[in-house]
Amino acid sequence: MAEEAIKISGKKKSSFIDQVKKLLPEGGNLNLCLTCGACSSGCPATGLEGMDPRKFLRMAALGMDEEILKSDWVWMCTMCQRCIYVCPMKIDIPQLIFNARRTKPRDERPKGILGSCNMALKHDTCSAMGASEEDFQFVVEDVAEEVRNTQVGWEELQAPVNKQGAMYFLNQNSREPVTEPDEMVPLWKILHLGGADWTYGTKGWAAENYCMFMADDESWKHIVEVKAKAVDDLGCKYWLNTE
């Protein structure tokens, strides 16, 4: 459906796309668009807020910074990278989106994502739901004991916490320990039968990282560092994130 033509001023006023190009390897190929539309035709976000990936890129290329940066569409693109996958020129539109998220003042980014990021920064657990080290350890040990006491053949089931030198450090999304702890059990059983040498850690156990989605680089970095340190402190060889 044709809408009114977009009018642009004669002089290019852009700086946003140029700044992003400086950050990306090969400038993210952001100059190479053939306008074929393969990105938009296979993008589930096409049409939301009257936007699509090709339109966003073309508007950025035309210097329409104000128009694209005020759009909520940057929070509706999930940065799934299907547009890159189908693009003949491998243009990195998701990185353009990520950097557009960053242009909004921190407090004006979506409240849910902001709240989840802020909550994760409060504890070394990195839990976006605010679960503490003690709560997590209690829930895991309580659920494991319940299974050992009630299910025939599972008297030896372990869900180790802070096991020094385990091969695998396993992350856990906060939703299970906080709201549906029994959902953790099937994975423990599989690891048990497979003979895996694994552990949770009271620090850095939470798998989610909303600071990344919020494009808050400093907080994102902090969360990753806390988690990586937890893995190193326990001397684990592999870090498994089921997220």
Partner: peptide
């Protein structure tokens, strides 16, 4: 690799939209 995203990623579930 050609699959569509479900829409749960990128923070969309927590974005209040």
């Amino acid at each position: 690799s050609n699959n569509y995203c479900c829409g749960g990623g990128g923070g969309f579930l927590q974005s209040g939209m």
